[in-house]
Design a protein around this nucleic acid. Sequence first.
DNA 1: AAAATATACGAAACCGTTTTCCTGATTTCT
DNA 2: AGAAATCAGGAAAACGGTTTCGTATATTTT
Lengths: 330, 330
Amino acid sequence: MATIREVAQEAGVAISTVSKAMNGSYTISEEQTKNIRKIAARMGYTPNARAQTFARQATRSAVFLTCLDRNAAFENPHMFEIISGAQSALRQKGYALILQHCDYKDICATVRDIMDSKRADGLLIHASVVTHELSLLLSRSEIPHIVIGKPEAGQRLCWIDNNNRLSGEIAARHLYELGHRNVAFIGGHESDRISEDRLIGVKSELPHTTILRGDSTIEEGKRITAELLRLPKRPQALVCANNHLAYGCLTALQEAKLHVLADISLITFDDYPFALYMRPALTTVSIDVYEMGIQAGKLLRSCIKKPEMQIQSFTTVPVLVKRASTAAPN
Amino acid sequence: MATIREVAQEAGVAISTVSKAMNGSYTISEEQTKNIRKIAARMGYTPNARAQTFARQATRSAVFLTCLDRNAAFENPHMFEIISGAQSALRQKGYALILQHCDYKDICATVRDIMDSKRADGLLIHASVVTHELSLLLSRSEIPHIVIGKPEAGQRLCWIDNNNRLSGEIAARHLYELGHRNVAFIGGHESDRISEDRLIGVKSELPHTTILRGDSTIEEGKRITAELLRLPKRPQALVCANNHLAYGCLTALQEAKLHVLADISLITFDDYPFALYMRPALTTVSIDVYEMGIQAGKLLRSCIKKPEMQIQSFTTVPVLVKRASTAAPN
DNA sequence: AAAATATACGAAACCGTTTTCCTGATTTCT
DNA sequence: AGAAATCAGGAAAACGGTTTCGTATATTTT
């Protein structure tokens, strides 16, 4: 309720002195600073954030913009986690995180509005596709921004993504070390960059991997697996590019009366909650999504602090979560 | 980049006139309004949100405060959905949603800071427990606020919650209509209000329900179910108070070689993604969580608009999602 | 002792809108 | 026709801090 003016009067100093004392300027003596802070506390003075925002010409806030369609966003159980990570990293330095959602078609208009209205000091964009138009808009913008997800080649953007290639390598190495040589990869279509990157990783460790592709759905996982089981030389281990495929795969294996672990191993990526609840619990190569959010927030912070900063990117390091779906071949 | 000053100069009118034209005041002629807007658009003028916030003495934003511990929040797959709903309802009227998290012990300090610093116009609180201290602080506060979840008796708060009692009724009625009379309820402890409310609903339809309680974990669900199966008169249908119990229950049933659907029916609440992926897919009584977020946002909006508003509450209406785990008894 | 420097604080500009109140012109009413 | 009411727009205050720059005093240097 009290304003800086009243505090200044009470303390018998100038307004500017109170401001400096509250913000800790070295031009105010320690004694004076302490005294002013004590008086401010006694009067219940809290700086008015609206006035600070205006005076500082900075909101101390960032927008987390999601541009997935609603269902896709809700089905991604990591969404809240990554946002929370970003929130935490930003809040730690006094930045608020504003959540905003828009349709793909509105994304440029939305970004432009955030820029022009100056309602935030930074922007985190979580979009599965960064169009050329958006990339251009961002590169010309004055607002610091980070893209979560890997941009197209040639787009000069700060971004953060999972190291999917490394994930693939880790999965393949795990199988290799268990003794598997006859491995099949069940992936999405060739246009699915995440799936493809994982495949590259797998192939770098196990070059002779059989590859099958389909839509990333449970049904397709089931169908592809069934097809795979009809092959003359049945694989000893399966790598599923994502959880949907893995779930379909698991179902098909059960229907074929195959025992995961004794007969065949299965490994997948992204630790969706249901990976733990499956029977058997699925071994996965996943990443610490909360940490990824933290890194995104930190990277944005440094972009805000040093706008002249070089383009940077950051890939999170995946970890193997061993559960009950992988074992040595018998 | 352009300011209102420059637009005013260009249009040859006063600053206040531009302001009114942009905000649509009836004291400016339509012709003039159109003209000014055209000039503003040509000059690329967008009102500076920071200055607006300051001048209006309102941020046009609300804070969504979560005070669950991190893991609990991440395991709740509905968290993002409800926040998105609130975001949507608020954004629709130009309000931004700020995400903030705090530990339970910091909740009062956090709320106080949001109030004192005036960094938001409204507050949505998602906490599983509203302490007396918090309730008091809120009731004395000047910031409009909504609690998501049911407050304790005697706390005068605006709140939004699922109608858990009705959920219980719907579940029981569904079983009753299928022909079940011999039903057991597997619930959390008596301190678990959600579980208890659901139980009240169940009992109102099926008064002779057998009741067993335990921790809301998978292991306990398993243990309780095993215990239940040893009873002389095995129930025909089970109601599990939450998904963890249901999952444990399902596992126990499988281990007992009982066939869900043919031998026994199972119904639970809250449509967690894995309810759909279970085998058989679980019939649940759930709510539209996104809609719940929308309602929370709308209720907050009206609290902001009319601060003198009466205490209001809103319970969402659950719906039965029939899947493959409930059938008539044989 | 005079000059240069450092220290601690104050005065005032500034941030860019909104909003209130006022005024002159036009219209309506009696 | 004169008074009252309405209309369209302008002038200026207000919002509450931050920050720059200036200055008096104290300290150090020469």
